[in-house]
Write a protein that binds this DNA or RNA. Structure first.
Lengths: 207, 207
DNA sequence: CGTGATATCCCCAAAAATAGGGACAACGCT
DNA sequence: AGCGTTGTCCCTATTTTTGGGGATATCACG
């Protein structure tokens, strides 16, 4: 091993950062060149340390994980990002990959998988945690929501009736009904309450 | 300091365990006597190591945090438990305290607060993270759901209609309507979809 | 130029929300 | 022991909301 993989850790939780540093300090081929607790700090440290790989928590206060990825890409189009998160926000998996993440790890993974993922993305490969991959596969067979439907499902989750949604969006109630019909079908249910629950589960709407 | 505080760490996430161990290894008055990754393992290690304080993640696969607290209390009624978790499951705060937790910490806390909380509960005090405390205060001004209402709201979240709920609980649809009316009022809404969302937010129903 | 997303209108049956009414058992409190 | 409270249950109404159908026009995009 001639040069070590230079790793930047970004997570707002001190505990997680400490755990990660501990894990990687045992690896002969990886060196942690920086720790950031926010997206802005990540951008600063990225410029300063020029890491090979950025290990990034998706769920952060302030700048979100996806926004952070985009910010880093402005600095270097070739930035290699591995996302680290829990699986509770399914929509975020997709958004992160769309934004350019090379790897997707879950916080309850084994140590070996964590370091192997870093090595894999450094080799230019993708590395997606099996459970996250399963969600992606599900996505492929599912329909995307249109922008309008997205607006409506958000209001739905906030307890608005069709009439209230119509008023909020300056549309007729019938139009809302039409969208709602399609929405229910796309979410695989016949019930608006269930649709709201599914939207929350999938991270389509954040609460 | 004559004797160190003997601490048992229970968390299914390796990363969190590593982070915690790192933090406490810097403290002269605290020694980590064991690490468990599940409730069952916690019970075993508790018997073996007899710690002064147990630092316990609420959200674990298998035995839940609350169940683990109860299991530990069977071994020693005086067990001193500090709960460590995120704030997404509000109901769990209350359940954990009810089950006998002495402290409540959030995973994004500063190092100083973490160790101070351990010391506080070891002195016999309670230590509740400010944000968790705020939720508890909210609870006091809110009405509790009855057992029946709890059953109904669970079925509601799973997309059941009043008729389906009636059938599932062997009640008349009218009775369900009556409960639903009270349920909506207690949850502070006039809309069943919103009620489902609120129930999820508060952790009343797990999804 | 076709396709898809958007928007509007009509209609209809089912479901839900709201409003009355009454009944009974369990509970703590005075 | 009597009292009020609470939770449970049931019934009858009416009105509103929802879910589903079809028909049609616009408008942007490739």
């Amino acid at each position: 091993m001639i040069t070590k993989i230079r790793l930047l850790i970004v997570d707002d939780h001190l505990l997680i950062r400490l755990g990660l540093v501990t894990i990687f300090s045992d690896q002969p081929d990886i060196t942690v060149v920086g720790e950031a607790s926010s997206g802005r700090m990540a951008a600063e440290l990225f410029a300063k340390t020029r890491p090979d790989v950025v290990l990034l928590d998706l769920k952060m206060p302030g700048l979100s994980g996806v926004e952070t990825i985009k910010l880093l890409q402005e600095q270097s189009a070739a930035v290699c990002v591995v996302v680290l998160t829990t699986l509770d926000q399914e929509e975020e998996i997709f958004r992160a990959l769309e934004a350019g993440a090379q790897g997707y790890l879950l916080k309850d993974m084994r140590k070996e998988d964590l370091v192997e993922a870093i090595r894999a993305v450094h080799r230019g490969e993708r590395w997606i945690a099996p459970l996250a991959g399963a969600r992606l596969a599900e996505r492929l067979v599912r329909k995307e929501l249109s922008d309008r439907e997205l607006e409506i499902v958000k209001l739905l989750v906030h307890g608005k009736s069709n009439k209230e949604i119509a008023s909020a969006l300056s549309l007729s109630e019938d139009t809302i009904k039409w969208h709602m019909k399609n929405l229910l079908e796309k979410l695989g249910t016949h019930d608006r309450t269930q649709a709201a629950v599914i939207a929350i589960q999938r991270g389509i709407v954040k609460i």
